[in-house]
Design a protein around this nucleic acid. Structure first.
Ligand SMILES: [Mn+2]
Ligand SMILES: [Mn+2]
Ligand SMILES: [Zn+2]
Ligand SMILES: [Zn+2]
Lengths: 159, 159
DNA sequence: TCAGTTTTTGTAATCATTATTAAATGATAA
DNA sequence: TTATCATTTAATAATGATTACAAAAACTGA
């Protein structure tokens, strides 16, 4: 964890930015909630718990900076807010998401998946891919289980 | 074109909605600008040209209704606005997009592309896919040409 | 015609994000 | 050390997209 912070610090320094206390607090919140998909407001509230003096604008500015340096990716799942997601160290592309239309859960796919598709796009459309966003909307395994058990209940009631 | 409107009308009726004049005007604008990716405001301004009495709220409500019926898809390319895109008749899934980070152009890919990937996701992650969003960010063929000719210029100046 | 329902309009309210500005902090060099 | 300049921050105002609301209009079916 500390080494991850250190590498981010170096990354900032390499672009002549500093890892100020506010920026470090923000990065720590992102690291501590790596599995979540936090909005700027979410991050702000979490940072405030440990650094109550931080301002909302600073969080917005920090997230924007981190996105510019490709440390985080900004993504929008269709509700009105942008969400911020730590990119895996050294990953060339953003990972993929599964959004459940029943329960709203967002799961991640870190596997590549798009290698072949990208070859087709680069060759057939002559488009030089720099990054991508891939999100599937559907029913997560948890909600499918639930549906199954509801069906079983129904069947039981009929017998 | 007329038949397309008729089918949309039937689709609305089948869910006991009416194709009011305002809704028809909105749909016509979408049909006449099928290749574009219009924001609600864009649609509003275009509808106003022929139906100046329409209200912005009506356009928003109509677009929301059309999205609910899967006649249009709502998508967000990262600027602050939602954009609305007619879905191809009978298409099970939304089509894909190529967003150029140089010139901002948005091109479409109507080909399926994700068939194999979806099989993997359904099997390995046990996720029942209902729809998807796939956007590539990169350099379009137009901007690549431009970069090439700029390189050639540079080379010429050096000789 | 009348009552009930749906839809629309115009506008106010909300909510996320960005801009602004003055203060604080940090680095640099005399 | 102290003056100076650049960077960063905090608080808050402004903006811009979207949604909520209330009254009027249009439509429907007895
Ligand atoms: Mn993620
Ligand atoms: Mn499109
Ligand atoms: Zn679910
Ligand atoms: Zn381009």
């Amino acid at each position: 964890m500390e080494s991850r912070i250190d590498r981010i610090k170096k990354h900032l320094h390499s672009q002549s930015y500093k890892l100020t206390p506010q920026r470090e607090a923000t990065v720590r919140v992102l690291l501590e909630n790596e599995e979540d998909h936090l909005s700027a407001e979410d991050v702000y509230l979490l940072v405030k718990e440990k650094s109550p003096e931080i301002g909302l604008a600073t969080v917005y500015r920090t997230l924007e900076l981190l996105a510019e340096l490709k440390i985080v990716d900004k993504i929008n799942f269709g509700d009105g807010v942008s969400r911020f997601d730590l990119r895996q160290e050294g990953a060339a592309h953003f990972h993929h998401h599964l959004v459940c239309i029943e329960c709203g859960a967002v799961d991640e796919i870190q596997d590549d998946l798009l290698g072949d598709v990208e070859k087709v796009v680069e060759n057939d459309w002559n488009f030089k891919i720099k990054d991508h966003r891939l999100t599937f909307h559907g029913i997560c395994y948890r909600c499918q289980k639930q549906e199954d058990s509801e069906q079983q209940e129904q069947a039981a009631n009929h017998s």
